[in-house]
C-alpha cells in the first residue's frame, strides 16, 4: 500500500505551488481555442483544465529530443571540436498515458547502440507526472485500440482523479522523494485502491475501440498491405506538409547540419527534426529519391508505426494519441485508414 497516496483536491493548488517553487515545471496550457502546448508554468492557474485538455500540439518528446538541438561546437581552423550537452531538470506535469507510451517508445530507440547520449542524459533529468483519462479526449483518439489507455509505467508519479481526491501511484524513488518532501499527501487505504479498480472497470467500457481488431489481427493487417489501393488514395490527398510526423510522439527522424559563424572559423553542429513526408527526405546524391510518390511516403509512415517496430521492438509505435489525424490538413485520419485497409482486404 505504500506505493499509493491520496491528495485531496483542495490541496492540489498547494501541491503544484510547492512543485513550482522547487522545480522548473512544465504542464499543458491552453494555446488557442482547440489547442494546447506543454509550457513552463509558474502558477497552478496556468494549467489547462483536465476536462478540456486534448493532446498538446507537440508531445512531450520535445523535452527529451528538442526540435533543434546543438550537439557540437567546432573550430574549423584549429581542427577542434567539443560535444555539447544542454539539459535542465524539469518536471513534466500532466502527461497522459498515450504520451507516456510515446516516451517509452523513444526510450527504446535512443537506448539502442550506438546510444544517443544527449537523449539519455536529458531523460535522466526529467521527472514525469502522469495523469489518467477517464474518457476519450475526442473522436480522433484511438488509445484503447493501441492498448495505451491504461497506465503501464514510464512515470515517476501517476495521478488518477477519483472524484474529490486524486490517488497517486509512486513509481520511482524520485517520485517518492517528491511525495515525502511536499507534505500534502496521506497514505492510501485498501478502500482507495478498491475505488480505483471500480473506476478502471467503468473505464474499460467507456473506451470502446470502434475497430474490432485484436493486436495480432492489427499486426496481420499491416503485414501484407504494401500493394493496397489505400496508399494511392492517401497519396492523392496528402499535401506533404509534414504535420503528421512533427506531432507524432514516436517519430524521431532528424537531420544534422553544420553552421559556421560569421568569423568563418567557429561554428556549431545541430540536429533538427526531419520528416519522411518532406520532398527531400529520401533524396540521395544525383537527385534520385527513393520515395518520390506521396503514396509511398504515407505508406512508409504507417508501416513505421504498425509494422517495422514490431519486428524490431516488439511493439506498435502508434500510441493512439490521435495527433496525426487532428493535425492533418487533408483529413487523413488514422482510424479511417485502418477501416479502409480492413474493407479492402475483405474485398469491399
Amino acid at each position: 500500500m505504500d506505493q499509493y497516496y491520496r491528495l485531496n483536491k483542495t490541496e492540489c493548488r498547494e501541491f503544484v505551488g510547492a512543485l513550482t517553487s522547487r522545480y522548473q515545471v512544465v504542464a499543458p496550457v491552453k494555446r488557442g481555442e482547440k489547442s494546447f502546448v506543454f509550457a513552463r508554468i509558474s502558477s497552478p492557474d496556468e494549467i489547462a483544465s483536465p476536462e478540456e485538455y486534448i493532446p498538446t500540439i507537440i508531445p512531450p518528446k520535445k523535452y527529451f529530443f528538442p526540435q533543434r538541438e546543438t550537439i557540437l561546437e567546432y573550430d574549423a581552423v584549429a581542427q577542434r571540436q567539443k560535444a555539447v550537452m544542454e539539459y535542465e531538470k524539469v518536471v513534466i506535469f500532466g502527461v497522459r498515458t498515450c504520451d507516456l507510451a510515446g516516451i517509452q517508445c523513444l526510450n527504446m530507440v535512443f537506448s539502442e547502440r550506438p546510444r544517443d547520449v544527449n537523449y539519455l542524459i536529458r531523460k535522466n533529468k526529467l521527472i514525469i507526472i502522469g495523469m489518467e483519462c477517464w474518457d476519450y479526449c475526442d473522436e480522433h483518439a484511438l488509445c484503447a485500440l493501441m492498448d495505451n489507455h491504461l497506465p503501464k509505467g514510464g512515470y515517476d508519479l501517476f495521478f488518477s482523479d477519483l472524484g474529490d481526491y486524486h490517488l497517486i501511484h509512486v513509481n520511482t524513488e524520485v517520485g517518492e522523494e517528491i511525495v515525502r518532501s511536499i507534505g500534502v499527501f496521506t497514505e492510501a487505504t485498501g478502500e482507495d485502491l478498491k475505488r480505483l479498480q471500480e473506476f478502471r472497470e467503468k473505464k474499460r467500457s467507456a473506451f470502446d475501440t470502434g475497430i474490432d481488431l485484436s493486436h495480432p489481427e492489427l499486426m496481420d493487417l499491416f503485414a501484407n498491405c504494401e500493394d493496397a489501393r489505400v496508399w494511392e488514395e492517401l497519396g492523392e490527398r496528402c499535401l506533404s506538409c509534414g504535420n503528421c510526423t512533427t506531432v507524432c510522439p514516436t517519430c524521431y527522424c532528424f537531420d544534422v547540419i553544420d553552421e559556421i559563424n560569421l568569423d568563418l572559423r567557429t561554428g556549431e553542429r545541430f540536429r533538427i527534426w526531419d520528416s519522411c513526408q518532406n520532398e527531400d527526405f529520401a533524396k540521395v546524391a544525383g537527385g534520385e529519391s527513393f520515395r518520390e510518390e506521396r503514396s509511398g511516403r504515407q505508406r512508409h509512415r504507417y508501416l513505421r508505426k504498425f509494422k517495422y517496430p514490431l519486428a524490431k521492438y516488439s511493439r506498435f509505435f502508434c500510441t493512439g494519441c490521435g495527433r496525426c489525424s487532428r493535425a492533418c490538413m487533408a483529413q487523413i485520419h488514422i482510424k479511417e485508414t485502418i477501416k479502409a485497409l480492413i474493407a479492402e482486404r475483405a474485398g469491399v
Partner: peptide
Amino acid sequence: PDYAVCVECKFNENECMYDKGITCLGPI
C-alpha cells in the same frame, strides 16, 4: 528548404490557422 512552412509552424506550436477557420498557404 523544400518543405512546407507547416513544418516550422508546428515546431513553434502555433495554433493552426485552419483550426481557427482561416485559410493559409503554409502547406504548400
